[in-house]
Design a binder for these strands. Sequence first.
DNA 1: TGTACATCAGTGAACGCGCGTTCACTGATGTAC
DNA 2: TGTACATCAGTGAACGCGCGTTCACTGATGTAC
Lengths: 210, 210
Amino acid sequence: LPDAPTSPRARYREQVRAEILNLAWRQIADAGSAALSLRAIAQQMGMTAPALYRYFASRDELLTELIVGAYRDLAETVEQASGQAEHPASELRDLARVLRGWATEHPQRYLLLYGTPVPGYQAPTEATALTTRIFTPVLKAFNAATTTTRRRDHTVTRRDRGPGFGQSVRFWTRLHGVLSLELAGHFVGMDIDVDELYDQETQAAIGLKS
Amino acid sequence: LPDAPTSPRARYREQVRAEILNLAWRQIADAGSAALSLRAIAQQMGMTAPALYRYFASRDELLTELIVGAYRDLAETVEQASGQAEHPASELRDLARVLRGWATEHPQRYLLLYGTPVPGYQAPTEATALTTRIFTPVLKAFNAATTTTRRRDHTVTRRDRGPGFGQSVRFWTRLHGVLSLELAGHFVGMDIDVDELYDQETQAAIGLKS
DNA sequence: TGTACATCAGTGAACGCGCGTTCACTGATGTAC
DNA sequence: TGTACATCAGTGAACGCGCGTTCACTGATGTAC
């Protein structure tokens, strides 16, 4: 992270930037990324819309900043939960729990990253690196779990991606399957215990053999 | 289905209605449901926008018709693949295959039903009945598979929902996990063989014990 | 078969809305001598 | 310490856009006698 800004002006600038991002998140939380509006943000700040162009070059740049910020936040959250447990299995349990916590805390943030893509919007190149960072702890844990058995795991990928890759992908798709349907409200009225469902899927995914 | 319309006027009416729905789908396929625009549809038909109000009361009603139509189409597709196979396992394989075919054929149609919900839009009551219809064949197959073992399956739901319910839900979430990430483009650049991944998940879900 | 009337698809103008973005500007804050 | 200048946050007016929806209307198609 860069040093904290020194001059009063720079500090003020950072503060206003933060408030813009904050209000932008509130809009997205309310009505999804399509509702992101510079004019509405300016209004809520008691400013006029053109003033925001001192802080962001365009609406798209603001959206990019939000997305990258969300990726970064998830990456940090996941990394913090990594390397804490004694066994790969309990580590994976921790990672799954932390992921669901992050997702349910701000549903629209999760959906912004993994939901229906914004039409016409091109993900920034930075995103792929962050995706890797998020994926790595899971991969490491499965790697550790599979190395002992000395088996190869290349069924799910065209080239060999090392042990644990296939299981990691399936771990991810299973958790995402439950999460995305939950966040989109598709379990409502079906009398499903999502906690229990998520736990079952976590356990089953941890037990995957290559 | 109601009888085919008799009078020329009624036939013409049906034809125009169909063309509107058709163009609406094309818009959604291009840029998602947010891009659905009455004015754009009218323009493509060489008509003025107010003329569409002869056929649909509002934009929302048109969207509802599209959603219900998609649900109905999926229900029919799934039902056609149901009751064909000899064993529950091969039946479930068929259902999974048919689902993926339907989803990949028109990605935005699948995402319209199971992707990030349209903010502020309330799903029609008809939708829940259709969701049940779509879910039933899977439930039946798991039901048939589990009845022989005489075991109860109520871990995933608060009340007992009969044998096979939990497995059916997990069958659904796993396939959706792969499908939604695939359709949203999240496997791009990861060198994943999605066919293989989907098959693996299908097989694993079929093997679920209660 | 021909006339009078009813139905109804589609038009054109208009309303009011919100959006992103540009541009020349004012006035306050910071900097250099 | 005081003055002259540079920097820069924010304004206000405007542009051009597309949207859903309403309303009084025209003119063609269908129906009843």
